[in-house]
């Protein structure tokens, strides 16, 4: 077990290297001279030279990359062109908001989705199955920003239960998390349903029943454990989607998250911030999938060997 986890962690290192190289090269892929892009067309040649010198852009690529990497490890992601503040400061709080949204969305989607999938599978082709599958179809096909507006309309404007903008207390997170997670509910419900139907027809389920296992044990222990294997994979991938896709929701709910920061940075060509946000989102994605891999091996012992 421990050996498996260590191997997985080690295998992540090359991926992180690749991510850092791509993020580093981003600036060089952008058409035109990055310094002119930064300073504008009218800048004096002396100023351009000075900035180039200051940023180290006149050095060979591999030297630039090395210092880029060392700076990242030291926690220095450069300075925002727009606000002139260190990027790490800009990004820290915003990352936290987005992470809470993504984790919350994933939790909501997995808990509700898995429960819906289980109920559908045990009530196959009966009323509850049809009902829940219609709900899940609705949830998959409703765009999150649209759902966000509807939620604000109902729960903020009409009922006044939850605030509609900002992040000042846990109540502020409720609507954005639901708006973000709902699309994945349907997806996970359908995955769980088909995986459960498959496992419930397996021979070992008959064995469990023949042992005298109560209904609850058969469904939630014997069947669900096996059905979770494909669902887990989807869950890990969805999390990355929710983290990167939270920009729309952050816009609607006026949450200063990393998604919004990234869009603002793209619009104002704030390259250090773009680099940092991409780096943060990619690294989070890699880490979450590492965790999923480890969970995988706990759920399915065959994975370890």
């Amino acid at each position: 077990m421990l050996k498996f986890i260590i191997t997985r962690i080690i295998s992540v290192i090359p991926i992180l290297f690749l991510v850092s190289i791509l993020v580093f090269l981003m600036v060089h892929f952008i058409p035109g001279d990055p310094v002119i892009n930064m300073l504008g067309m009218e800048a004096q040649p002396e100023a351009i030279e000075a900035t180039r010198e200051r940023l180290g852009l006149n050095k060979p690529l591999h030297i630039q990359y090395t210092s880029f990497l060392i700076n990242i490890l030291k926690g220095d992601l450069g300075t925002s062109i727009r606000t002139k503040k260190p990027v790490i400061q800009e990004i820290k709080d915003k990352y936290r908001y987005s992470l809470i949204l993504a984790i919350g969305g994933t939790l909501v989607a997995s808990v509700l989705g898995v429960l819906m999938g289980i109920v559908s599978a045990i009530k196959q082709n009966k009323f509850w199955d049809n009902f829940l599958m219609v709900i899940s179809l609705l949830s998959v096909s409703t765009p999150s920003f649209f759902l966000a507006l509807i939620l604000i309309l109902i729960f903020s404007l009409f009922l006044g239960w939850f605030p509609s903008i900002g992040v000042y207390s846990w109540r502020h997170y409720v609507l954005p998390i639901f708006a973000l997670g709902t699309q994945s509910i349907g997806l996970i419900a359908r995955m769980t349903r088909s995986a459960m139907l498959d496992t419930l027809n397996q021979d070992y389920i008959t064995t469990a029943k023949a042992k005298g296992a109560p209904w609850f044990q058969v469904v939630f222990s014997h069947a669900l454990r096996n059905a979770m294997i494909p669902v887990l994979t989807i869950l890990g991938l969805r999390f990355g989607g929710l983290l990167a896709g939270s920009a729309l929701i952050e816009m609607v709910f006026a949450i200063p998250g990393i998604g919004r920061l990234m869009i603002d940075a793209v619009l104002t060509r704030d390259y250090p911030v773009i680099q940092a946000t991409v780096l943060f989102i990619s690294v989070t994605f890699v880490m979450i999938n590492l965790i999923v891999d480890i969970l995988y091996s706990i759920v399915d012992p065959r994975v370890k060997c």
């Binding site: 070992y204 008959t206 064995t207 042992k211 399915d300 065959r302």
Partner: peptide, 25 residues
């Protein structure tokens, strides 16, 4: 019936490959 299954009347199945749950010891 649950008190009888596996306790007073039990059963062995044809396929030992698929009759045991793969994720439990």
């Amino acid at each position: 019936m649950r008190k009888i299954r596996g306790n007073e009347i039990s059963m062995i199945f044809q396929e030992p490959m698929t009759s045991l749950n793969p994720v439990f010891t």
